[in-house]
Write a protein that binds this DNA or RNA. Structure first.
Length: 590
RNA sequence: CGGGGCGUAGCGCAGCCUGGUAGCGCGCCUGCCUUGGGCGCAGGAGGUCGGAGGUUCGAAUCCUCUCGCCCCGACCA
């Protein structure tokens, strides 16, 4: 979307409007209530708890079983209401470790000190994660909200999501998928139908137990993912093999109650896309699963300029209810891995749970073979952690909404002439599809603007002043290299396009080089332990969960995936020495 | 829940020990001035000191309780 002159301007006007006019209208009497927001909800929770306990309770021994649901969803309360301590102090642990908050006055000392000094970002060297949080906020990508664990995505951040959506949506449509929408609320009984699925997601559920002022007979879960409710629907849509394949995608929000959240990378509510398909045969489902993973890989590398390794997940990282899970894994600048997308071959697990059958070519009833796949707003976190620097956000041109900002320099009559010329140039640049804004604000100095636009990640800065006009030229500065050059105005559009194109390529090349430089084989367990912080370790693994667990225990690194790109030669497990089918990427992960 | 830290203006902080007119920087508003890497000057607006009790003639400051937040751990896409 072409941006006008205001696209990157601080969204002051908007916040003013909200601040003044957007007053709270009191709670609607019929408002749907999320569980634990009212006392009665707790009772339901207690009542509901035992059937879903699963083994999670065992892993969290400090939680009393009767309060289990409070742990899972008891934190779904409005800010400042009904502290867990009022439940008799038994569920204290439930809502403790939340990270995001709208009212965090207290940053780390590092952050505070830095904030006092101008508007500079904390450099990555000083604290990578501080840098990230600082950047997200200063580049106006997202803000904390008053709901714990939930963020506000600001226009600059949402523009990135829109770019991601636009590109992926086209790729989905080009491969025959169609968009649809399913309800936010899922009957709890649906989630229970697939045993492993409910066990996997149970601890992360938020429940709605009161609606229209009455207790619901059966609570609804706010979707953590939609396999169940979609299957309940698919079962009605599918009659025969002629109805297959069924290729559906949904863009929506989901909610998973996390103990610890980070802007974009892991938030309680997030935006994503979930594809759900049904096929006649297992082979076809597998092909679809791999095809969608390949689409993710292509998108990540070609649009986001983020190199990824595509491969198969270990058993312990497999999606709850799937046969097999594949993922793409990217390396962030701190050498940690980020799972950037997943694709699951669901087999017939959900089909059996929901009786999703079709009459086959053979005249017999068969369960459909299914897949599901998704990427989320986490990609924005990945984008930031891959390309950005100490000056702020860096966005690959293919994903950027703001490609060029033209900064007007000069005063008086001269300035008027410069503005005129800048507008003409902007129009030319927009004509070739670029997002362009002209900054004509006289109240801020040019230098201030340079910093500001670098912070916000505009790909290309054009400076235009009286001296330039005299020479029929302008100054162009690429965001990634920050190299200045003079370009003749007559060829400015072509030059801008060329710079953006090479910027896209260079960003990918740089990221890939970094990833490759920090990817290495490890052949002994000592080596693995010693180099766990150095990046992607390629290690033989026998596929026994115990060896994987030991690695995690000793190093906090986990298996990421077994990459397809890596020629799989058998070897010996780096932990136990037993036969391994091939090398696995092992790394510390987000 | 275990271990640390903290609530004072939009943001970042000082003041508290030793009770007595609530301050500083940034930001914001107005005007003038400036404009090629975070201009300057002058004026101005903005705070129930997280909340509730208590002590006191008097509480941001002392005492008690309470609410909330951040970091590390445990959990997890």
């Amino acid at each position: 979307m072409a941006t006008g002159g205001t696209s990157l301007a601080p969204d002051r006007a908007a916040s003013r409007v909200t601040g003044a006019g957007g007053g709270r209208s009191g709670p609607h009497p019929k408002a749907t209530t999320v569980s634990a927001a009212t006392a009665p909800a707790i009772q339901i929770d207690r009542h509901m708890a035992p059937p879903f306990l699963g083994c999670r309770v065992m892993r969290r021994p400090w939680l009393r079983p009767s309060l289990w649901m409070v742990a899972a969803c008891g934190t779904a309360r409005g800010p400042g209401r009904l502290g867990a301590s009022r439940l008799g102090g038994e569920a204290q642990g439930a809502d403790r470790p939340r990270l995001l908050s709208g009212r965090c006055r207290h940053r780390s000392p590092l952050l505070s000190r830095r904030r006092r000094m101008a508007d500079k970002l904390i450099p990555r060297e000083k604290g990578f994660s501080e840098w990230y949080v600082d950047l997200v906020q200063k580049a106006k990508l997202a803000d904390y909200s008053d709901v714990k664990g939930c963020m506000v995505i600001r226009p600059n951040g949402f523009a990135l999501w829109e770019s991601i959506q636009r590109a992926l949506d086209k790729m989905f449509k080009d491969t025959g998928h169609r968009n649809a929408y399913f309800p936010l609320l899922i009957p709890l009984s649906y989630l229970k139908k697939e045993a492993e699925h409910v066990e996997g997601f149970n601890p992360q559920l938020a429940l709605v137990t009161v609606a229209g002022g009455k207790q619901l007979e059966e609570p609804y879960a706010i979707r953590p993912t939609s396999e169940t409710i979609i299957n309940a629907t698919f079962a009605k849509w599918i009659q025969s093999y002629r109805d297959l394949p069924l290729l559906i995608n949904q863009w929506c929000n989901v909610m998973r109650w996390e103990m610890r959240t980070r802007l974009f990378l892991r938030t309680t509510e997030f935006l994503w896309q979930e594809g759900h398909t049904c096929h006649e045969t297992e082979e076809e489902a597998e092909r679809e699963t791999r095809q969608m993973l390949e689409i993710y890989r292509t998108f990540a590398e070609e649009h986001m300029a983020m190199p990824v390794l595509a491969g198969r997940k270990s058993e312990s990282e497999r999606f709850a209810g799937a046969l097999r899970t594949y993922s793409i894994e990217a390396m962030m600048q701190d050498k940690k891995a980020l799972q950037a997308g997943t694709s699951h071959n669901l087999g017939q697990n959900f089909a059996k749970a929901f009786n999703t059958q079709f009459l086959g070519r053979d005249g017999q009833q068969h369960y459909v073979w299914q897949t599901s796949w998704g990427v989320s707003t986490r990609l924005i976190g990945g984008l930031i952690l891959t390309h950005s620097d100490d000056s702020g956000l860096v966005v690959p041109p293919k994903l950027a909404a703001s490609h060029v900002v033209i900064i007007v320099i000069g005063k008086g009559e001269e300035r008027a002439r410069v503005v005129e010329r800048a507008q003409a140039l902007a129009a030319d640049l927009r004509r070739v599809g670029l997002g362009v804004s002209v900054d004509d604000d006289e109240s801020k100095s040019p230098g201030f603007k340079y910093f500001e636009y670098e912070l916000q990640g505009v790909c290309l800065r054009v400076e235009l002043g009286p001296k330039d006009l005299a020479k029929e030229q302008c100054v162009m500065v690429r965001r990634d290299t920050r190299v200045k050059e003079f370009a003749p105005l007559s060829g400015a559009v072509a030059r801008a396009q060329a710079l953006l194109e090479s910027m896209q390529k260079d960003l990918f090349a740089r990221a890939k080089q970094f990833r490759d430089e920090h990817t290495f084989e490890v052949n002994t367990y000592d080596e693995l332990k010693a180099r766990a912080d150095d990046g992607f370790m390629l290690a033989h693994w026998c596929e026994k969960p115990s060896c994987e667990a030991k690695v995690k225990e000793d190093t906090s690194a986990t298996t990421r995936c077994r990459p397809f790109a890596l020629e799989q030669v058998p070897g010996k497990c780096v932990v136990c020495g037993e036969p391994s089918p091939g090398r696995m990427v092992v790394a510390k992960a987000y």
